[in-house]
Computed example of a mutant assay.
Amino acid sequence: MAGKKVLIVYAHQEPKSMNGSLKTIAVEELSKQGCSVTVSDLYEMEFEPRTTRKDIVGDLYNPEQFNYGVEAWEACKNGCLSEDLIEEQRKVKEADLVIFQFPLYWFSVPAIMKGWLDRVLVQGFAHDFPKCFESGLLKNKQALLSFTTGGDKEMYSKGGVTGDIRHSLWPMQHGILHFCGFSILAPQICYAPESVAEEERVQMLTSWVKRLRTLWEEKPIDCTPEWYYK
C-alpha cells in the first residue's frame, strides 16, 4: 500500500541468518509496494537494553528514591527522555505497522528487544491508565511478531512438549502490544529453520513474501483469552 509506513524492530546478530533474510525480504517487498520502511537493527545499533538513570535528561522528579516507571513517565511528559528513546518513539509514532523480527528465546524475545520494549513503550507514550488496550495511546497502529523457533511445529502444538505456541504469545501480543493499543496481526512463525532442508527454508521465505503482498488486507486477530486459549 503506497504511502504506508512500516517500522521493523530487528534483533539478530547475524545478517545471513533466517531472521536476517526475513527482515531483508520484508524491506524489499514492502518497499516495492510503495511503503516507507525503517529498520531498527538493535544489535547493529548497540541498543542499550537496561532501564537506568541515563534515560532521564536533567533533574529527577524524586531524587530521594529512584523509581524508573515514575521517572520515565514524568520525563516523557516533559520531553526529558534520552535522545535514543525519543528517536525510537518517533519511529513508532510515524509507523502504521510495527514488525518485530527475532528468534524466540526462552518463550520470549531476546533481551535486547525486551529492553527496547521496556524503554520505548513507557507510560505517557504508549499507555496511560486507563488509556490501555482498545484505548491505548498507540491505537490505530498494527503490530506483527515474525520469529523463528528452535523446535519444530509439533513441539509447539497443543499436544506438544512445550504446549500451544499461542499460550507463549499471550504476554507479548496481549500483555505488551495490545495493552499499548496496537491491533495485532497473526504471527509469522518459522519453525526450526536450522533443522530443516534448504528447500524448506526457501519455502519459509517464499511464504513470507506471499503473505506480505496481501498483508494490508488482513484483519487483526481477536485479542481475547478465547483466541489464545481455545
Rank of each mutant, 00 (worst) to 15 (best):
M1F: 09
M1W: 06
A2N: 14
V6L: 07
V6H: 05
L7A: 13
A11Q: 09
M18T: 12
S21G: 12
K23Y: 03
T24R: 13
E29M: 03
K32M: 08
K32G: 06
S36F: 11
V37G: 15
V37M: 12
T38K: 15
T38P: 01
T38I: 14
S40N: 14
D41M: 13
L42Q: 11
E44F: 05
E46K: 13
E48G: 03
R50K: 12
R53G: 00
R53T: 01
D59N: 12
L60W: 06
L60E: 02
Y61N: 01
P63C: 01
Q65P: 00
A72N: 08
C80R: 15
L81W: 10
S82C: 13
S82F: 09
I86V: 14
Q89C: 02
R90A: 13
E94S: 09
D96K: 09
V98L: 13
I99F: 14
Y105T: 03
W106F: 11
S108E: 03
P110G: 04
M113I: 04
R119F: 02
R119I: 06
L121G: 02
G124A: 00
A126K: 01
H127A: 05
F129T: 06
C132K: 10
G136I: 06
L137R: 02
L138Q: 08
A143K: 09
T149D: 04
G151T: 01
D152T: 02
G160H: 02
G160V: 01
S168Y: 09
W170G: 03
P171I: 02
H174E: 11
L177F: 15
L177W: 11
F179L: 12
F179Y: 15
F179I: 03
G181D: 06
L185T: 05
P187I: 07
Q188E: 15
I189R: 06
C190H: 10
P193G: 08
E198R: 08
E198G: 03
E199T: 13
E200R: 14
E200V: 14
V202W: 10
Q203D: 14
T206C: 07
W208G: 11
L212H: 03
T214I: 14
E218R: 06
K219H: 08
C223V: 15
C223L: 02
C223T: 11
C223R: 00
W227F: 12
W227D: 10
